[in-house]
Simulated assay, not measured.
Amino acid sequence: MQDASQKGFTLIELLAAVAVLSVLVMIAVPSYQKYIRDARLNHVRAVLLQNAHFMERFYQQRRSFKQTSTTWPALPYAETEHFCIRPQGNARGAHDGKFTLKAVAFDKSGEPRVIKINESLITVICESSDSACSDNDSFFAGGAKVDQQCKVFQ
C-alpha cells in the first residue's frame, strides 16, 4: 500500500511516456526534413525565375541569350545558400533563342534532385543528376542524359 504523502510516477509510467514520445519523434522528424527540403526547392525555384527574367531582359537588349558566341552572360544570382545555379550546356553551338538554367545542390547526398527552368519558364525537377557544383565551371556540361527521372515541377 502506498503512503498518501508519496507522489510521483512509477517506472512503468515513465517508460510508457518515453515510448510514446519516441514514436512521435520518429513520425515528426522525417516530415520536418521533407518540409525543409521542399522549402529549399521552392526558394531556388524563385531564384531561377528571377534569373530567367534577367535572361529575357538580356535577350531584349541583344537579340541573343548569349554574351558572345561562346559564353553565357553572368547571372545575377549564381547561388543560394544550398544550390549553385548555372546555364545548362555550353553556349558554343547553343541556339540563340533558347536557354536552360539549372540549380544543383552543393550537398548532393542531402539533396540529389535538381531543378531547371527554360526560356518558356517551364520548370522541371529531376530526381537525380550527374551535374555537380564546381567553382571553375560557368555552365553545367552535358545534355539531357545527365538528368534522370524528370517531370514538370508543380
Rank of each mutant, 00 (worst) to 15 (best):
A17W: 00
Q33K: 13
V23Y: 04
V47Y: 00
N42T: 12
V18N: 05
R40V: 03
P30G: 11
I12P: 02
R45Y: 06
V18W: 06
A46S: 13
L24P: 05
V44Y: 02
A16G: 15
V20A: 14
L49T: 09
L24Q: 11
V20H: 06
V18T: 11
R45Q: 14
R45N: 13
I36Y: 01
R37F: 02
L49K: 04
E13I: 00
R45L: 09
Q33L: 14
I12S: 06
A46R: 00
L24R: 07
A39R: 09
R37A: 13
S22R: 03
S31G: 14
A46K: 02
A19C: 06
V25E: 06
L24T: 14
I27T: 15
N42E: 14
L49H: 07
Y35Q: 11
R37L: 14
L14A: 04
I36Q: 07
V25M: 12
N42M: 12
L14G: 01
A16M: 14
L21W: 00
N42K: 15
I12G: 05
L14I: 06
M26G: 14
A28N: 07
V25C: 08
L41T: 03
Y35R: 08
I12H: 03
L15N: 03
N42I: 10
R45D: 12
R37Q: 11
L15Y: 03
Q33M: 14
A46F: 02
L24S: 15
L14E: 00
V25H: 01
V25D: 07
L15Q: 01
I27H: 10
L49V: 08
Y35L: 12
D38K: 12
Y32L: 13
D38M: 12
L49E: 10
M26A: 15
S31M: 14
L21N: 04
L21K: 00
L48K: 03
Q33Y: 04
L49P: 01
A19K: 02
L14M: 10
A19N: 05
Y35G: 09
P30H: 10
M26V: 15
S22F: 08
R37S: 10
V25K: 01
V44M: 09
S31I: 13
N42G: 12
I12M: 06
I12F: 03
A16Q: 12
A17L: 13
A39L: 09
K34L: 11
R40I: 05
V18M: 14
R37D: 10
P30S: 12
A16W: 02
I36D: 04
K34W: 07
S22M: 13
V20W: 09
I27R: 09
V18K: 06
R40C: 01
Y32T: 07
A17Y: 08
M26L: 15
V44Q: 02
L24H: 03
L41C: 07
I12E: 02
K34D: 10
V29N: 07
A28W: 05
L49G: 00
L48A: 05
R40T: 02
L21E: 09
V25S: 10
V20T: 14
M26F: 15
A46V: 02
